[in-house]
Computed example of a mutant assay.
Amino acid sequence: MKTHLPIDEDMKELLDKIGARMAELKHPPLSDLSAEQSRYFYKEARTFFQKIEMNDMMIYNEKIESADHQIPVRIYQPASAEMLPVLVFMHGGGWVFGDLDSADSMCRYLAKHANCLIVSVGYRLAPEHPFPAALMDVLAVSEWAPQNISKWNGDPAQLAIGGESSGANLAAAAVHWLKDQGKQAFTMQCLLTPVLNHNFYTESYQSGYSFNLTKEKMEWFWNHYLSNQEQGKNPYASPLLAINSADLPPAMIVTVEYDPLRDEGKQYAEKLENSGVPVTYLYYEQLVHSFPNMIGQVNRADLAMIDLTNQLKILLRKNF
């Protein structure tokens, strides 16, 4: 068994501050909270993350029509004289938390440093809208993007998809769905600390990590996302279970040391590689889940984001 380095001290200090605030608010056990109640504590915790501002960037809020509802998207357009590669991006939050605002700093950062157009997707949340509602929203945006993105200087021939955590799950599921339907719109996928399997028995799940994301939290998230446990075997919920992973877009997969999701991310990278899919696998020690949200406060998170964004910038252009 691998010996792990201690968690980054700056990161631990930040998490301790958040933990102290949750104690001050008398945060009850997650199992005692409804989804709506828990969103209050999520938003309060996020106030400890530094807001990132980027100059030389235009921001547009749009609505995409889909069946009986509208899907909000936020478009981040860096200043550029050239057509830009596009990344359709889904926020994290266990399918229960998060919105366009919670992903705002990360999207600004990625747009600026990877020099790409970002389309951030405000997909519907569980349990009000359980599986596969969020995925259907992502697929609707996937259909909309190639036809409309040139309006914001995005190149429809350079279209990637990605996300963080549960958002990465939706990105991975979308490329499987589109491949199975013969409608693949994307030529690259970027999966940051992805959720990939409804299974809690990997070594990283069993390690008892208590930093930010825990096994218990993931079980709670899955229980809100799925209408029943049998849905967890559906490869569009658990992309790691897909029978055929060949002919998927090249992938960049990011995992970190102190994350219950670490092992399934590595397993997925290996599965794609074994299926002939080009994979760039990045692993960062001493970091925890949601580290991209800690840029500007945790030096090791800053370094990891610089590295992965440099790699993303290259891959966005290499794969087209």
Rank of each mutant, 00 (worst) to 15 (best):
R262E: 05
D137W: 07
G92V: 04
Q206Y: 04
Q267V: 05
V277T: 05
L135V: 10
S166K: 00
T47G: 05
Q189G: 09
F49S: 09
E128S: 08
N223Q: 09
R108A: 02
W144R: 00
E264L: 02
T280G: 07
L178E: 14
N310E: 15
G98C: 07
S210F: 02
P85M: 03
T280Y: 07
I52F: 06
T3N: 12
L226S: 02
I149K: 03
K183H: 03
I253R: 04
R317T: 15
P127T: 02
Y209M: 06
P278R: 06
A237P: 05
A140S: 07
A45L: 11
K63Q: 08
S245H: 12
A168L: 00
P239T: 02
Y60N: 08
C116E: 00
G265M: 00
N274R: 14
L117A: 11
L30R: 12
M305Y: 12
Q189T: 09
D10W: 09
Q297P: 05
M188Q: 13
V298T: 08
A140M: 01
Q189S: 07
V256F: 09
V279Q: 03
E62I: 13
L191I: 01
D263L: 12
D16G: 06
E62G: 09
A126F: 14
L125K: 10
A145Y: 01
M218S: 07
A185S: 10
R317M: 12
F200D: 10
M305K: 04
S102M: 11
A160Q: 02
C116S: 01
L261N: 03
G154P: 08
Q147F: 09
K233F: 10
N212F: 10
I306H: 08
M57S: 10
Q70C: 13
D99Q: 12
D137T: 09
V141C: 00
C190L: 13
F131L: 00
I7V: 14
A172N: 06
E53G: 08
S120D: 02
K318S: 12
Y209V: 12
L191V: 00
Q286Y: 10
K233V: 06
N153T: 05
F89V: 00
K151E: 15
I75N: 07
P29W: 01
S38R: 11
R317Q: 15
W220T: 00
W222H: 08
G232F: 01
V73S: 01
N223E: 05
P156G: 08
D32Q: 14
D101M: 12
T280H: 11
F200Y: 15
E65C: 12
E203L: 03
N212K: 07
W177P: 01
P132A: 07
M1I: 13
T214Q: 02
M1H: 14
Q311S: 06
N228C: 15
L15S: 04
F89W: 06
K233C: 08
S166D: 07
R46G: 08
D263K: 10
P130Y: 04
Q267N: 10
V277D: 01
